[in-house]
């Protein structure tokens, strides 16, 4: 009996200047396999389906339980996390490509640092006075916690940005993830102190106004963040802020 196998087609590019090529791999099937375990198998035996020696595939990964946000890639054309992509739920051949909206490094690895830069530009933190002992933080009621916690679950995987038709070099749109973080920190009793600053920042070029409300972000988000609600709320807050700024100027 022939051994059961899984067919992969992986888009590879040795470096940003090199041509992109597709390589086909045939890997023995095992129960409970995910895309990452297949990439690990290829590293252990880097031979294509037609028997040609190749190199292990470069990709980002770390926790493998969908919490670190590293392994986002296109799997059968869709942006998602490779660790939670179980082989048995995927149509074969499984086509794997790097995310398309970020500068390519090599193979499936891209540079997503723009998100971290965006978080800096909206001051996505609570400005505490210092780490010395100042007693407990402000009281927070469970209802508030239950609103904020989902927003705090963002793993910075950038899937929401990849799938967004407005996130591209022409618009320079900031993307849903950053907008959700603005909502999170504007909600916090101490984080609020930067509320106006954050809202003004998001009225800059590439800000919340660039959203086309295609709602792909909320569909693609592996952590089910309420992204479209955050965009709505922040969209309103930014308008109110700008009108106030204008009237008080």
């Amino acid at each position: 009996m022939a051994e059961r196998t899984v067919i992969f087609e992986i888009k590879r590019q040795a470096n940003p200047d090199a041509p992109a090529v597709w390589e086909r791999f045939e890997i023995p099937w095992r129960h409970g396999m995910n895309v990452i375990s297949a990439l690990m198998d290829i590293a252990g035996n880097p031979v294509t389906a037609d028997g040609r020696q190749t190199t292990p595939i470069t990709y980002d990964s770390n926790c493998l339980e969908e919490i670190c946000g590293s392994c986002a890639m296109l799997i059968n054309g869709k942006a998602r996390m490779a660790c939670s992509a179980l082989i048995d739920n995927l149509e074969q051949p499984i086509r794997i490509e790097p995310l398309t909206k970020f500068p390519l490094v090599r193979d499936l690895q891209v540079d997503r640092s723009v998100l971290f830069e965006n978080l800096k530009r909206v001051k996505a933190w609570v400005p505490i006075d210092g780490t010395y002992d100042l007693g407990p933080g402000p009281r927070v009621y469970p209802q508030q916690q239950e609103t904020n916690y989902p927003l705090s679950n963002c793993i910075s995987c950038t899937c929401c940005m990849e799938v967004c038709p407005q996130f591209n070099v022409e618009t320079g749109f900031v993307g849903a993830a950053t907008i959700a973080q603005v909502k999170l920190f504007n909600n916090h009793p101490t984080g609020k102190v930067f509320k106006e600053e954050r809202l003004r920042a998001l009225a800059g070029d590439g800000g919340v106004q660039e959203c086309g409300y295609a709602q792909n972000c909320v569909e693609a988000c592996p952590k089910q963040l309420p992204l479209t609600t955050a965009i709505s709320d922040i969209g309103r807050d930014v308008v109110v802020q700008k009108v106030q700024d204008w009237l008080r100027s």
Binding site: P103, N168, V169, V174, G204, D205, G206, Q209, E210, V238
Partner: peptide
């Protein structure tokens, strides 16, 4: 070493006037 292509630029926080035109 090869150079990365430039990608989507970060937010121009508070800069520009696209907000008013879009709204």
């Amino acid at each position: 070493s090869p150079q990365l292509r430039s990608g989507v630029e970060p937010l121009r926080a508070g800069q520009g006037s696209s907000f008013i035109w879009r709204k």
